[in-house]
């Protein structure tokens, strides 16, 4: 059973003061996220990522379409007991302490009184806020609030977690900690759906990603497939400060850095390149396929959509 099935969810808002015109924030979206996956929802700012998450959380109502979460209708309140949600740049009741806030959310999530205290304490420990459990949230930094946000999302041990820009406002150490936490969630078998515009985070964490821009889905696939050696080229690295003539003859683009040479050649020339290095008694360090980065794929998808739109005009 998929964790999330989005079946043509669409959202339009009426804009304008006198004459209201519909503006599409999200074109009909079809998407499936499998159980136990870490799924990245990528797109530039204003692409429709937050709108999609708000639709799934029932914070805004769709113009059409529906969704199923954990096998149930997405509007079913019981589903919400099994999901966690971190909104973008979260803000909390600043008169409460971190402990009181988590206790309040645990109560609302239906965590039993017996388990509540233990669950709150262990979550505070997990996000590194145990020492400041009694401090009112108004005194927290942005990074600490982000941790509180993550804590409230995982507090009730949900099966599925939605994170909207979870790395936003975090320093490199904080980002690393959130990455580790998301990996832990994956190992625990949770499904993680997170939106981001930071591609390195998605590349490091996700099993699959979807790319959205201007409210439309532009591409979807497994990270391994999207970043595979689609260029049909390999990178050859050897020790030395020279490029053999036979290597040049293969049409290699070579770059010398100190005592190391890197050359990009076609996959078909791989054996010939090894022979050339052997003849010249040069030490081979590595041969690796040239992979398309997620960034290149992302940019290509966005540019492709832009050019299609221009052609249509």
């Amino acid at each position: 059973m998929p964790a999330i099935e989005i079946l043509g969810l669409e959202k339009s808002y009426k804009v304008g003061f006198w004459i209201k015109r519909p503006r599409r924030a999200l074109h009909p979206l079809h998407l499936t996220v499998e159980d136990g996956e870490v799924f990245g929802f990528l797109g530039p700012n204003g692409a429709g990522k937050t709108t999609t998450l708000k639709l799934l959380m029932g914070l805004v109502f769709p113009s059409s379409g529906s969704a199923r979460i954990l096998g149930r209708q997405w509007t079913d309140p019981e589903v919400k007991a099994q999901i966690g949600f971190l909104p973008e740049q979260p803000y909390f009741y600043d008169h409460l302490t971190a402990h009181e806030l988590l206790n309040y959310y645990a109560q609302l999530s239906g965590v039993s009184a017996k388990d509540r205290s233990r669950r709150v304490e262990s979550t505070l420990q997990r996000v590194g806020l145990k020492d400041v459990r009694g401090v009112q949230l108004r005194k927290f930094s942005k990074g600490m609030l982000q941790r509180v946000g993550i804590a409230q999302a995982i507090l009730h041990d949900p099966k599925l977690v939605f994170f909207d820009e979870p790395m936003s406002g975090l320093d490199p150490v904080g980002r690393r900690e959130v990455r580790d936490l998301m990996e832990q969630l994956k190992h625990e078998g949770k499904t993680v759906f997170f939106s981001t515009h930071i591609l390195s985070d998605a590349e490091a964490l996700c099993d699959r990603v979807a790319i959205i821009n201007k409210g439309e889905l532009r591409g979807i696939g497994a990270i391994d497939d999207l970043t595979s050696s689609v260029q049909g080229k390999v990178e050859v690295i050897w020790h030395g400060a020279q490029v053999p003539v036979s290597m040049k003859a293969l049409g290699a683009e070579c770059h010398i850095t100190g005592e190391t040479v890197r050359a990009i050649i076609g996959e078909a020339q791989q054996d010939a390149a090894i022979d050339a290095l052997r003849r010249e008694h040069l030490r081979l360090i590595a041969i690796t396929p040239v992979r398309t980065s997620l960034e290149a794929y992302f940019v290509e998808k966005l540019q492709h959509a832009e050019s299609k739109a221009r052609t249509a005009v």
């Binding site: 708000k54 959380m57 029932g58 914070l59 309140p77 019981e78 919400k80 007991a81 999901i83 966690g84 949600f85 909104p87 740049q89 979260p90 803000y91 909390f92 009741y93 959310y105 609302l108 999530s109 239906g110 946000g149 409230q152 939605f162």
Partner: peptide, 14 residues
């Protein structure tokens, strides 16, 4: 306005 509501209504709260 402060979006505190998002984390409340994303729970089983009608």
């Amino acid at each position: 306005e402060k979006r505190t509501l998002y984390t409340v209504l994303s729970r089983p709260v009608r």
